[in-house]
Simulated assay, not measured.
Amino acid sequence: MELLVEQFFNIDIMRQALPILLGGLKVTALLCLIVIPMGLLGGLLVALGSLVPSRLVRWPLVAFVDLFRAVPPLVLLIFVYSGLPFAGIRPSPFAAVCIAFLLNNSAYYGEIFRAGIESIGRGQWEAARSTGLGQGRTLTYVILPQATRNVLPDLVSNTVEVVKLTSLASVVALQEMLYAADMARSVTYNASPIVLAALIYLVLLWPVVRLMSRLEHRMGH
């Protein structure tokens, strides 16, 4: 038991590693601030495009959603970072993570928004149009607010997954929190920095998870 505590819960090593991890946390936070809004916007555009009657628009978007939901995010990230240079495109680690996560998140958020929009009955469209609202305003002021409320737990759940996915950025040597923790582990020969990183993730995400549960409970009633 003493050896277990020494190797995984060494308070002195955690204290020494904390400044390094907080530096990595800033990169993680910046990544989330960029990737999540981009994914939400991309997903909304995908969902709206999937409503277009034209097959020339709808089918490519269906293929986009199916492809990027099926490809593992880690594989996609490695392809963007290590594969694109063969085509003459050399993204930085940060740009590679943003591109890969944008493609992945847009597909998932797109399906969530599409389900929300389709959950609104045609009567809502017709009632809004009968008041003189055009199709664009009907969508903006009547349909989207209701659709977003209907799928809010799913949006929050997917956003939590996006935050956890940022740990994959360490694969391309982006100095986010997990990368910083692994560097501290390699210097100290101790797993305590990794445990500390896990605890920081827990402290940050647990309130959001509880909020998600409360939302699901309220919407269930």
Rank of each mutant, 00 (worst) to 15 (best):
I11A: 10
S82N: 06
R137M: 14
R129Y: 04
R129V: 12
T159Y: 10
T28Q: 10
L74D: 11
H217E: 15
G123H: 05
A29F: 08
F79Q: 03
L139K: 03
D66N: 12
I36L: 00
L211V: 07
L165F: 05
L155N: 13
L205V: 08
G220L: 02
F86R: 04
A128D: 03
R149P: 01
L168F: 15
P93Y: 02
Q7H: 06
M177A: 03
L30W: 12
T131M: 11
N150Q: 13
V75Q: 03
R90H: 11
L77K: 09
A17P: 12
L3F: 13
V75I: 08
F101W: 03
W125R: 04
G49V: 04
P153M: 09
V151S: 08
V5D: 08
V156E: 14
L4H: 03
S167T: 12
L4T: 07
G134D: 13
Q16S: 08
G220P: 01
E176M: 07
I194A: 07
A87H: 08
R149M: 14
H217W: 08
V35C: 06
Y81A: 03
L139Y: 05
S192H: 09
A87N: 05
L40M: 12
L202G: 11
S157T: 13
E118C: 01
L165R: 10
V162I: 14
V208E: 07
G134Q: 06
V163K: 06
A87D: 06
P153C: 08
D12S: 13
S170Y: 15
E176D: 10
L21R: 11
E2A: 15
S106K: 02
D182R: 15
Y179C: 05
S157K: 06
M1I: 10
D182Y: 13
I112W: 00
Q175N: 11
I20Y: 14
T28K: 11
W59Y: 14
E126G: 07
Q7C: 01
P93H: 08
R214D: 09
L56S: 12
I200N: 00
V65T: 14
I36R: 00
L84D: 02
I112H: 00
N104D: 09
A29C: 04
V5M: 12
P37H: 02
V65L: 04
R218M: 07
L103V: 06
Y108C: 00
A95M: 13
Y189I: 11
Q175T: 12
T28C: 07
M212H: 12
T159K: 10
L67W: 07
P37N: 04
L202V: 09
L48E: 03
P91F: 13
P91N: 04
